[in-house]
Design a binder for these strands. Structure first.
Lengths: 132, 132
DNA sequence: CTGATAACGATAGCACGTTATCATTATGAA
DNA sequence: TTCATAATGATAACGTGCTATCGTTATCAG
């Protein structure tokens, strides 16, 4: 991983502030590729390696958290959002934030199993993709 | 994928019945590698490609279903188990079945989002791995 | 039992997301 | 403004999980 044995960034480059801005204004978790696409709209010569490097640094600094879904590239979103879960649209493959959570999840675990965290994901079609 | 454009199996080989048996008696979802390890205990010369092929066929026939977790190889379990969810031990990395489900998950979705399915996963330490 | 061939086992090849490399660019302290 | 060097961009290389290939083995209809 870029972040593991790497010094934290020291210089404020155009690329970094643009990438920070992309995640700041994102309405949903973004893959590195999605973030790169948004970045290129502003800095056409920006490379994807820079996005990987910057995202890794932001995760290391605690500004971003990964959002992982099976069979999908990792997405990232701002770490300061309240506890929530995700919805994945099976049509456009985008991932959306849901607000709130559900009680009683821990009760599903058998005795002597210690629950540290949980994830809830809904699958279906988003408002845009609508019913078939 | 092995299963997509492949004819269904016609012969009953030692390997196939052994693999079926492994999943029949498994207490939790198994990766192909785990299933192969169990197979080799009985048929030492068995190759992992056979497990991939057989698992794909069993999925195509509806006997197995995939259990996917981010950043993990796909696991498989019998398709005839009742609706349930999973627990992943962060220490031994094994995945366990939980029984039962939770009400009210659909309510998390925004209006006009259509929910077709959901997944709930708990993370923590299993009874074997215990508290630190 | 025999033989056509399904299936096997070993392993090369592939796809994908990610990381390393390195010549070039541009930041920012002095 | 200068210039040491952090950071970039292009792309090669990597790791992992899975699939294809192909010579060999073993199933099972006849």
């Amino acid at each position: 991983m870029y972040g593991s044995s790497r010094a934290l960034p020291r210089r404020n480059t155009r690329q970094r502030s643009a990438i920070r801005d992309v995640f700041e204004h994102a309405e949903r978790p973004l893959t590195v590729e999605e973030a790169h696409a948004a970045l290129v709209a502003r800095l056409p010569r920006a490379g994807i390696a820079t996005v990987y490097r910057t995202v890794a640094a932001m995760v290391a600094q605690g500004g971003l958290v990964p959002v992982e879904m099976p069979g999908e590239p990792v997405r990232y979103e701002r770490a300061d959002i309240a506890h929530h879960h995700h919805f994945r649209c099976e049509a456009c493959r985008r991932v959306f934030d849901l607000s709130g959570c559900i009680e009683g999840l821990r009760a599903l675990a058998p005795p002597r199993f210690r629950v540290r965290d949980h994830s809830v994901t809904l699958y279906g079609t988003c408002a845009n993709c609508g019913p078939a």
